[in-house]
Amino acid sequence: MSLLALKDIHKSFASAEGPVAVLQGVSLAVQAGEVVALTGESGSGKSTLLHIAAGLEPVDAGQVLFGTQDMAALPDAGRAQLRRGTVGLVFQQFNLVPSLSVGANLAFQARLAGKHDAAFCTDLAARLGLADLLSRYPEQLSGGQQQRVAIGRALAARPEVLLADEPTGNLDEATGDAVFALMLELARAQGTGLLLVTHSARLAGQCDHAIHLRNGRLA
């Protein structure tokens, strides 16, 4: 059974000219330890699909299955609980909690999910090169450092699925490559399924599978 299975997802948005269909019957699956790249042009619906997978965006039709549990059918509180315990999210803009230190940011989701393991967190921080930065605040870090904190925060909760939306889009190529390699390594080591939205064919090439979206459909 897939860790994450999106089945026949439909989604449209209202506009002045009428509804715009963004996703039209998209299906995909992510297995344990598998890294899936989702590529496509701007406006093809990649991020919308990722948001749907995270339970951030409701679907018009279709199923978002984590094992046998359909996230799309859950109320807001159920979706939040599933997100807290099962999903890790990494964004292009890092989205760290600015009022918390690096250490607190790293541990936050794990503690929220009741899965905090201090030793694991410390090890993760060391592997991410953040051990000396734990008492700093996000605004005091570079972009690359912030993204490493965001990845660490997502992985510290030992999620079954990691959803990453252009995680290196805001970084220069060298930093982006290093961060991506680290994320890949950690996700594979934990057996976490990774769905990665990217524009980069080079990064997609390093994944187990690449799925291309065009006009809301799988190409």
Partner: peptide
Amino acid sequence: PLWAMGLTVR
């Protein structure tokens, strides 16, 4: 970010 990490809007 808190919402994304599992806090509800409520």
